[in-house]
Design a protein around this nucleic acid. Structure first.
Lengths: 139, 139
DNA sequence: TACCACATTGCAACATAGTTGCAAAAAATA
DNA sequence: TATTTTTTGCAACTATGTTGCAATGTGGTA
Protein backbone atom coordinates (compact mmCIF):
# COMPACT_ATOMS: atom_id res chain seq x y z
CA UNK A 1 0.00 0.00 0.00
CA UNK A 2 2.99 2.26 0.51
CA UNK A 3 3.82 1.46 -3.06
CA UNK A 4 1.16 3.78 -4.36
CA UNK A 5 2.44 6.64 -2.23
CA UNK A 6 6.00 6.21 -3.42
CA UNK A 7 4.87 5.72 -7.00
CA UNK A 8 2.98 8.99 -6.93
CA UNK A 9 5.93 10.86 -5.50
CA UNK A 10 8.31 9.38 -8.09
CA UNK A 11 5.89 10.05 -10.92
CA UNK A 12 6.00 13.70 -9.92
CA UNK A 13 9.77 13.81 -9.57
CA UNK A 14 9.68 14.52 -5.88
CA UNK A 15 12.27 13.17 -3.52
CA UNK A 16 10.97 10.60 -1.09
CA UNK A 17 10.91 12.07 2.41
CA UNK A 18 9.14 11.10 5.59
CA UNK A 19 6.83 14.10 5.59
CA UNK A 20 5.75 13.62 2.00
CA UNK A 21 5.13 9.92 2.47
CA UNK A 22 3.16 10.41 5.67
CA UNK A 23 1.04 13.30 4.42
CA UNK A 24 0.27 11.73 1.06
CA UNK A 25 -0.67 8.51 2.84
CA UNK A 26 -3.09 10.52 4.99
CA UNK A 27 -4.81 11.89 1.91
CA UNK A 28 -5.09 8.44 0.38
CA UNK A 29 -6.64 6.98 3.51
CA UNK A 30 -9.09 9.84 3.91
CA UNK A 31 -12.28 10.01 1.88
CA UNK A 32 -12.76 13.69 2.68
CA UNK A 33 -10.69 16.79 2.31
CA UNK A 34 -8.06 17.80 4.83
CA UNK A 35 -7.11 21.16 6.22
CA UNK A 36 -3.68 22.01 7.51
CA UNK A 37 -4.98 21.53 11.03
CA UNK A 38 -6.25 18.03 10.33
CA UNK A 39 -2.80 17.04 9.19
CA UNK A 40 -1.12 18.61 12.16
CA UNK A 41 -3.48 16.77 14.49
CA UNK A 42 -2.90 13.46 12.75
CA UNK A 43 0.86 13.61 12.71
CA UNK A 44 1.37 15.07 16.17
CA UNK A 45 4.78 16.55 16.77
CA UNK A 46 6.33 14.57 13.97
CA UNK A 47 6.72 17.48 11.57
CA UNK A 48 7.16 21.18 11.87
CA UNK A 49 4.21 23.41 10.95
CA UNK A 50 6.28 24.96 8.20
CA UNK A 51 7.11 21.58 6.70
CA UNK A 52 3.43 20.75 6.46
CA UNK A 53 2.68 24.06 4.76
CA UNK A 54 5.50 23.52 2.31
CA UNK A 55 4.57 19.93 1.61
CA UNK A 56 0.98 20.92 0.86
CA UNK A 57 2.18 23.70 -1.42
CA UNK A 58 4.46 21.28 -3.26
CA UNK A 59 1.60 18.84 -3.76
CA UNK A 60 -0.63 21.60 -5.08
CA UNK A 61 2.09 22.76 -7.49
CA UNK A 62 2.49 19.22 -8.78
CA UNK A 63 -1.23 18.75 -9.15
CA UNK A 64 -1.40 15.93 -6.62
CA UNK A 65 -3.93 17.77 -4.48
CA UNK A 66 -6.11 20.80 -5.08
CA UNK A 67 -7.53 23.48 -2.84
CA UNK A 68 -11.20 23.78 -2.02
CA UNK A 69 -12.72 27.23 -1.67
CA UNK A 70 -14.68 27.81 1.49
CA UNK A 71 -16.26 30.67 3.32
CA UNK A 72 -14.82 29.84 6.72
CA UNK A 73 -11.31 30.94 6.02
CA UNK A 74 -9.65 27.56 6.31
CA UNK A 75 -8.09 26.16 3.17
CA UNK A 76 -8.95 22.52 2.62
CA UNK A 77 -7.13 20.17 0.26
CA UNK A 78 -8.26 17.07 -1.55
CA UNK A 79 -6.55 14.51 -3.75
CA UNK A 80 -6.79 15.07 -7.46
CA UNK A 81 -7.88 12.07 -9.41
CA UNK A 82 -5.74 10.67 -12.21
CA UNK A 83 -7.31 13.03 -14.70
CA UNK A 84 -5.38 15.81 -13.01
CA UNK A 85 -1.69 15.99 -13.68
CA UNK A 86 0.87 18.75 -13.64
CA UNK A 87 0.09 21.45 -16.13
CA UNK A 88 -3.01 19.72 -17.36
CA UNK A 89 -5.72 20.02 -14.78
CA UNK A 90 -9.21 18.85 -14.60
CA UNK A 91 -10.36 22.30 -13.66
CA UNK A 92 -13.93 21.80 -12.61
CA UNK A 93 -14.52 20.44 -9.17
CA UNK A 94 -17.63 19.86 -7.14
CA UNK A 95 -17.24 19.78 -3.40
CA UNK A 96 -19.75 18.89 -0.78
CA UNK A 97 -19.44 20.15 2.76
CA UNK A 98 -21.63 18.49 5.36
CA UNK A 99 -23.33 20.89 7.77
CA UNK A 100 -23.45 18.20 10.45
CA UNK A 101 -20.12 16.38 10.47
CA UNK A 102 -18.13 19.02 8.53
CA UNK A 103 -16.63 16.37 6.29
CA UNK A 104 -15.78 17.74 2.88
CA UNK A 105 -16.12 15.46 -0.11
CA UNK A 106 -14.74 15.90 -3.59
CA UNK A 107 -17.47 14.63 -5.91
CA UNK A 108 -15.40 13.74 -8.96
CA UNK A 109 -18.07 11.77 -10.70
CA UNK A 110 -20.65 14.55 -10.71
CA UNK A 111 -20.42 16.66 -13.81
CA UNK A 112 -20.19 20.42 -13.55
CA UNK A 113 -23.02 21.89 -15.59
CA UNK A 114 -22.23 24.44 -18.24
CA UNK A 115 -22.97 28.06 -17.40
CA UNK A 116 -24.25 30.89 -19.50
CA UNK A 117 -22.09 33.81 -18.42
CA UNK A 118 -22.78 37.45 -19.26
CA UNK A 119 -20.99 38.88 -22.31
CA UNK A 120 -17.28 39.35 -21.94
CA UNK A 121 -16.85 36.93 -19.08
CA UNK A 122 -14.73 33.88 -19.85
CA UNK A 123 -14.48 31.03 -17.41
CA UNK A 124 -11.26 29.09 -17.04
CA UNK A 125 -12.19 27.17 -13.93
CA UNK A 126 -15.37 26.44 -12.04
CA UNK A 127 -15.68 25.33 -8.44
CA UNK A 128 -18.97 24.35 -6.93
CA UNK A 129 -19.32 24.30 -3.20
CA UNK A 130 -22.45 22.52 -2.15
CA UNK A 131 -23.38 22.30 1.48
CA UNK A 132 -26.07 20.24 3.14
CA UNK A 133 -26.35 16.80 4.67
CA UNK A 134 -24.02 14.01 3.55
CA UNK A 135 -24.90 10.37 2.92
CA UNK A 136 -23.63 9.20 6.29
CA UNK A 137 -25.43 11.88 8.30
CA UNK A 138 -28.73 11.53 6.43
CA UNK A 139 -29.13 7.87 7.45
CA UNK B 1 -28.09 58.90 -2.24
CA UNK B 2 -27.39 58.61 1.45
CA UNK B 3 -31.07 57.94 1.78
CA UNK B 4 -30.73 54.40 0.52
CA UNK B 5 -27.99 53.64 3.03
CA UNK B 6 -30.01 54.94 5.94
CA UNK B 7 -33.16 53.25 4.70
CA UNK B 8 -31.41 49.90 4.57
CA UNK B 9 -30.05 50.32 8.08
CA UNK B 10 -33.45 51.32 9.45
CA UNK B 11 -35.18 48.50 7.62
CA UNK B 12 -32.88 46.11 9.44
CA UNK B 13 -33.36 47.77 12.81
CA UNK B 14 -29.77 48.85 13.09
CA UNK B 15 -28.75 52.07 14.75
CA UNK B 16 -27.27 54.63 12.42
CA UNK B 17 -23.59 55.00 13.11
CA UNK B 18 -20.72 56.44 11.11
CA UNK B 19 -19.06 53.12 10.50
CA UNK B 20 -22.23 51.44 9.29
CA UNK B 21 -23.12 54.31 7.01
CA UNK B 22 -19.64 54.52 5.52
CA UNK B 23 -19.16 50.79 5.02
CA UNK B 24 -22.61 50.20 3.55
CA UNK B 25 -22.06 53.14 1.22
CA UNK B 26 -18.82 51.51 0.08
CA UNK B 27 -20.66 48.32 -0.82
CA UNK B 28 -23.32 50.24 -2.73
CA UNK B 29 -20.74 52.14 -4.75
CA UNK B 30 -18.72 49.05 -5.55
CA UNK B 31 -19.74 46.67 -8.29
CA UNK B 32 -17.53 43.91 -6.96
CA UNK B 33 -17.07 42.16 -3.67
CA UNK B 34 -15.02 43.62 -0.86
CA UNK B 35 -12.65 41.99 1.57
CA UNK B 36 -11.92 43.36 5.00
CA UNK B 37 -8.68 44.78 3.64
CA UNK B 38 -10.42 46.70 0.86
CA UNK B 39 -12.59 48.41 3.42
CA UNK B 40 -9.69 49.21 5.68
CA UNK B 41 -7.81 50.72 2.75
CA UNK B 42 -10.80 52.78 1.69
CA UNK B 43 -11.59 54.22 5.07
CA UNK B 44 -8.04 54.84 6.24
CA UNK B 45 -7.65 55.41 9.95
CA UNK B 46 -11.29 56.33 10.35
CA UNK B 47 -12.38 53.12 12.05
CA UNK B 48 -10.74 50.52 14.20
CA UNK B 49 -10.04 47.12 12.64
CA UNK B 50 -12.34 45.53 15.17
CA UNK B 51 -15.19 47.85 14.30
CA UNK B 52 -14.93 46.86 10.65
CA UNK B 53 -14.97 43.17 11.53
CA UNK B 54 -18.00 43.64 13.74
CA UNK B 55 -19.83 45.78 11.23
CA UNK B 56 -19.32 43.15 8.53
CA UNK B 57 -20.53 40.43 10.88
CA UNK B 58 -23.62 42.48 11.73
CA UNK B 59 -24.41 42.99 8.04
CA UNK B 60 -24.01 39.26 7.39
CA UNK B 61 -26.31 38.42 10.31
CA UNK B 62 -28.94 40.80 8.97
CA UNK B 63 -28.64 39.43 5.46
CA UNK B 64 -27.45 42.72 4.00
CA UNK B 65 -24.24 41.16 2.65
CA UNK B 66 -23.09 37.58 2.17
CA UNK B 67 -19.72 35.89 2.22
CA UNK B 68 -18.06 34.49 -0.87
CA UNK B 69 -16.05 31.30 -0.58
CA UNK B 70 -12.56 31.46 -1.97
CA UNK B 71 -9.43 29.39 -1.95
CA UNK B 72 -7.08 32.20 -1.04
CA UNK B 73 -8.06 32.47 2.55
CA UNK B 74 -9.49 35.95 2.40
CA UNK B 75 -13.19 36.28 3.09
CA UNK B 76 -14.93 38.53 0.59
CA UNK B 77 -18.35 40.08 1.04
CA UNK B 78 -20.94 41.23 -1.46
CA UNK B 79 -24.28 42.97 -1.20
CA UNK B 80 -27.31 40.73 -1.19
CA UNK B 81 -29.97 41.70 -3.64
CA UNK B 82 -33.50 42.37 -2.45
CA UNK B 83 -34.39 38.71 -2.74
CA UNK B 84 -32.24 38.14 0.31
CA UNK B 85 -33.60 39.24 3.62
CA UNK B 86 -33.04 38.21 7.18
CA UNK B 87 -34.01 34.61 7.75
CA UNK B 88 -35.08 34.09 4.18
CA UNK B 89 -32.04 33.88 2.00
CA UNK B 90 -31.54 33.42 -1.62
CA UNK B 91 -29.11 30.59 -1.06
CA UNK B 92 -27.59 30.00 -4.45
CA UNK B 93 -24.93 32.42 -5.54
CA UNK B 94 -22.64 32.55 -8.50
CA UNK B 95 -19.44 34.48 -8.11
CA UNK B 96 -16.86 35.33 -10.67
CA UNK B 97 -13.30 36.08 -9.73
CA UNK B 98 -11.12 37.68 -12.37
CA UNK B 99 -7.63 36.19 -12.65
CA UNK B 100 -6.27 39.49 -13.95
CA UNK B 101 -7.75 42.30 -11.90
CA UNK B 102 -8.92 40.17 -8.95
CA UNK B 103 -12.31 41.83 -8.96
CA UNK B 104 -15.00 39.54 -7.66
CA UNK B 105 -18.48 39.82 -9.11
CA UNK B 106 -21.71 38.47 -7.75
CA UNK B 107 -23.64 37.29 -10.80
CA UNK B 108 -27.18 37.45 -9.48
CA UNK B 109 -28.87 37.11 -12.81
CA UNK B 110 -27.16 33.85 -13.78
CA UNK B 111 -29.11 30.85 -12.64
CA UNK B 112 -27.44 28.09 -10.66
CA UNK B 113 -27.98 24.85 -12.55
CA UNK B 114 -29.52 21.90 -10.75
CA UNK B 115 -27.18 19.13 -9.74
CA UNK B 116 -27.58 15.39 -9.63
CA UNK B 117 -25.96 14.43 -6.35
CA UNK B 118 -25.06 10.87 -5.29
CA UNK B 119 -27.60 9.04 -3.16
CA UNK B 120 -27.95 10.28 0.39
CA UNK B 121 -26.51 13.71 -0.27
CA UNK B 122 -28.93 16.58 0.22
CA UNK B 123 -27.99 20.09 -0.81
CA UNK B 124 -29.20 23.08 1.17
CA UNK B 125 -27.02 25.69 -0.45
CA UNK B 126 -24.88 25.91 -3.54
CA UNK B 127 -22.10 28.34 -4.24
CA UNK B 128 -20.38 28.53 -7.57
CA UNK B 129 -17.00 30.15 -7.83
CA UNK B 130 -16.02 30.74 -11.40
CA UNK B 131 -12.66 32.19 -12.24
CA UNK B 132 -11.36 33.48 -15.52
CA UNK B 133 -11.27 36.78 -17.34
CA UNK B 134 -13.91 39.42 -16.65
CA UNK B 135 -15.68 41.64 -19.15
CA UNK B 136 -13.45 44.63 -18.49
CA UNK B 137 -10.19 42.69 -18.76
CA UNK B 138 -11.21 40.78 -21.89
CA UNK B 139 -11.61 43.95 -23.96
C1' DT C 1 -33.36 70.01 24.71
C1' DA C 2 -31.75 67.12 28.49
C1' DC C 3 -31.69 62.67 30.43
C1' DC C 4 -31.35 57.77 30.59
C1' DA C 5 -30.89 53.02 29.01
C1' DC C 6 -28.77 50.46 25.80
C1' DA C 7 -25.94 49.56 21.77
C1' DT C 8 -21.64 50.44 19.62
C1' DT C 9 -16.81 51.69 19.47
C1' DG C 10 -11.81 51.64 20.48
C1' DC C 11 -8.17 49.68 22.87
C1' DA C 12 -5.33 46.00 24.46
C1' DA C 13 -4.38 41.52 24.45
C1' DC C 14 -4.82 37.24 22.54
C1' DA C 15 -5.52 33.39 19.01
C1' DT C 16 -4.98 31.32 14.55
C1' DA C 17 -3.13 31.05 9.83
C1' DG C 18 0.52 31.50 6.79
C1' DT C 19 5.36 33.20 5.04
C1' DT C 20 10.46 33.96 4.74
C1' DG C 21 15.56 33.45 5.46
C1' DC C 22 18.98 30.60 6.81
C1' DA C 23 21.77 26.95 8.78
C1' DA C 24 21.54 21.94 9.62
C1' DA C 25 20.13 17.51 8.02
C1' DA C 26 18.64 14.28 4.73
C1' DA C 27 18.11 12.55 -0.29
C1' DA C 28 19.73 11.92 -4.72
C1' DT C 29 23.55 11.45 -7.75
C1' DA C 30 28.03 10.21 -9.11
C1' DT D 1 31.32 6.67 0.06
C1' DA D 2 31.84 11.57 -1.33
C1' DT D 3 29.54 15.37 -3.36
C1' DT D 4 25.73 18.01 -4.80
C1' DT D 5 21.14 19.29 -4.31
C1' DT D 6 16.88 19.29 -1.95
C1' DT D 7 14.34 19.42 2.15
C1' DT D 8 13.68 20.32 7.00
C1' DG D 9 13.43 22.82 11.45
C1' DC D 10 13.92 26.93 13.84
C1' DA D 11 13.12 31.72 14.70
C1' DA D 12 11.05 35.67 13.56
C1' DC D 13 7.56 38.00 11.23
C1' DT D 14 3.03 39.34 8.75
C1' DA D 15 -1.81 38.84 8.15
C1' DT D 16 -6.27 37.68 9.79
C1' DG D 17 -9.67 37.31 13.17
C1' DT D 18 -11.63 37.25 18.23
C1' DT D 19 -12.73 38.61 23.11
C1' DG D 20 -13.37 41.52 27.39
C1' DC D 21 -14.01 45.83 29.04
C1' DA D 22 -14.25 50.76 29.75
C1' DA D 23 -15.60 54.86 27.18
C1' DT D 24 -18.48 56.92 23.87
C1' DG D 25 -22.50 57.50 20.87
C1' DT D 26 -27.44 56.54 19.60
C1' DG D 27 -32.40 56.34 20.16
C1' DG D 28 -36.32 57.05 22.92
C1' DT D 29 -38.63 59.70 26.40
C1' DA D 30 -39.77 63.39 29.57
Amino acid sequence: MHTQVIDTLKKNQLSITDSRKTILQLFMESDGALAHMDIENNTGEEFDRVTIYRTLQTFVDKGIIHTIPSADNAIRYALCKDACSEGHHHDNHIHFMCDHCSTTYCLDHVEVPALQLPGGFMASRTDMVVSGCCNRCSK
